[in-house]
Nucleic acid binder design. Structure first.
Lengths: 192, 192
DNA sequence: TCCCTAATGCGACGAATGTTGCGTTAAGAT
DNA sequence: ATCTTAACGCAACATTCGTCGCATTAGGGA
């Protein structure tokens, strides 16, 4: 099952083109932001022809989805600090870092998700996976007897991370990391 | 100071055109959703000429911003039920209703805010105003001695409403109204 | 090394999008 | 009732976006 489809050629030039294009996307994102992220601009910067980008990625959203996938860590695991509060604080700091990075790929993909269904699908899949894995911090806390059994993991995680997304993405206002920590503590206390 | 700019003509035909166009926007939004919301489609539906729409509203985002402004209630006040928890529950129900309406103008404007800066500005202004007014429910609770003085209103409000936006807008998953109530209670308890 | 063909490059095309100049209509002041 | 001109209608134009057919390049197996 390790064999690849013989009709495809992922090596050599194809791989080089892909990395060049994705690098161009990131650079363009850093310089001019998501608004100026055009297929033509990416193609021109990468030196790859317009048609090639259109054929392989189809849309701007496709480019961002690929970039998100390339950067995604399949081995990602939620932090394990020994306490629910510590875990949530660490989680929130990851989210905070992802949303305040410049350029923030997450922010760009969120913006793209409002344009094409594929980007929206990719994003919800990504988050669904992340939240499913993160549920571990809650079940561990239950196992430790820290919080009552039957606690809904999704509710705790939403309570912790949602304010960050809302403030930084929708309200578009700055949020210090200390505030991120505070929301994590509130979420932990809400089930304590 | 009640006199209007003599160089402008808000009455008669101009007003009629505006209402026809905004009605077309809402109808188009209800039928085909935000994706299909094109200047041309709106113009064709309203019977107004393309050029007119381009000149007065410039972009799709401009149309939605105007629609948001037309629907905004300047006399809006936060609910006053007598308790912080009751107020927050009522507030969350308003947010929940706005986000689950079909079509949801709020959802459409959020989508538009990721395209053009004007829409983003209009939205942040709108929310800033709403959150500023909503702070009253917290200060009232402080005055009643329900919660300690010095409580940050913004933090409480974020804690209550953010999960709704996150789940319904970004995660794109359904959220029953009972869950909205629950998040309001958590927010109230976090400062109790 | 040679051969097959997937992947890319290239140019041209059509469609959608946005702009401009000018004539026409009607709001509102006199 | 008359006049001025803001707002609108109209058509032509420019630009951007996405697609298609065909030539060229280069992976990777024989």
């Amino acid at each position: 099952m390790t064999e690849t489809d013989p009709a495809t050629r992922p090596g050599g030039r194809t791989a080089r083109v892909r990395s060049e294009v994705l690098a161009a996307v990131e650079a363009e994102l850093a310089e001019h932001g998501y608004d100026a992220l055009t297929i033509d601009a990416v193609a021109a910067r990468s030196g790859v022809h317009r048609t090639t980008v259109y054929r392989r990625w189809k849309t701007v959203a496709g480019l961002l989805v690929d970039l998100l996938g390339a950067g995604a860590d399949d081995a990602w695991e939620p932090p394990d600090t020994g306490s629910l509060e510590g875990d949530l604080v660490a989680l929130n700091r990851e989210v905070h870092a992802a949303l305040t990075a410049r350029p923030s790929i997450t922010q760009a993909v969120i913006a793209a998700s409002f344009r094409t269904p594929e980007a929206a699908g990719a994003l919800t899949t990504f988050w669904q996976d992340r939240y499913a894995r993160s549920a571990l911090v809650v079940t561990r806390a239950v196992a430790r007897g820290e919080i009552p059994a039957g606690t809904d993991p999704q509710q705790v995680l939403l309570c912790a991370t949602a304010p960050l997304y809302h403030q930084l993405v929708l309200l578009r206002r700055p949020l210090p990391r200390s505030a991120a920590d505070r929301f994590a503590r509130i979420a932990a206390a809400s089930v304590g």
